[in-house]
C-alpha cells in the first residue's frame, strides 16, 4: 500500500475532518425535508454533493495514512 509521509497527529486531523463532514452531510440531508424555501433546499443539496466528494477523498487519505 502506498504510504504518505504522515505522522499520527496528521492522521487524527484528517479523521476529525472526516467526522465533521459526515455529520454536516447528515444534517444538511435531514434539513432538506424540513425547509419550505426551494432556494435554500438547492443550497443544502449542493452542500450534500460537496460533502460526499470530500468524504470520499478523506476516506482515501485516512486509509492511506493509517499507521500500520
Amino acid at each position: 500500500m502506498p504510504q504518505l509521509n504522515s505522522t499520527l497527529h496528521e492522521t487524527m486531523e484528517l479523521h476529525e475532518l472526516l467526522n465533521f463532514k459526515t455529520i454536516c452531510m447528515t444534517t444538511s440531508k435531514m434539513a432538506q425535508g424540513v425547509v419550505f424555501d426551494q432556494d435554500l433546499k438547492a443550497l443544502l443539496e449542493k452542500d450534500v454533493q460537496q460533502s460526499r466528494q470530500a468524504i470520499t477523498v478523506l476516506q482515501g487519505l485516512v486509509i492511506k495514512t493509517q499507521p500500520q
Binding site: L4, N5, S6, H9, E10, E13, L14, E16, L17, F20, K21, C24, T27, S28, A31, L40, L43, L44, D47, L61, T65
Partner: peptide, 26 residues
Amino acid sequence: LNFLLNAKSGIKNCATALTEIADPEA
C-alpha cells in the same frame, strides 16, 4: 442560520487542519 454556522465551522476546521498537515497530497 444553522447551515451558515456549520459552513463557518467547516472553513475553520479545514484551515486548522491545513496548519497541521505537511503531506503535499493531503
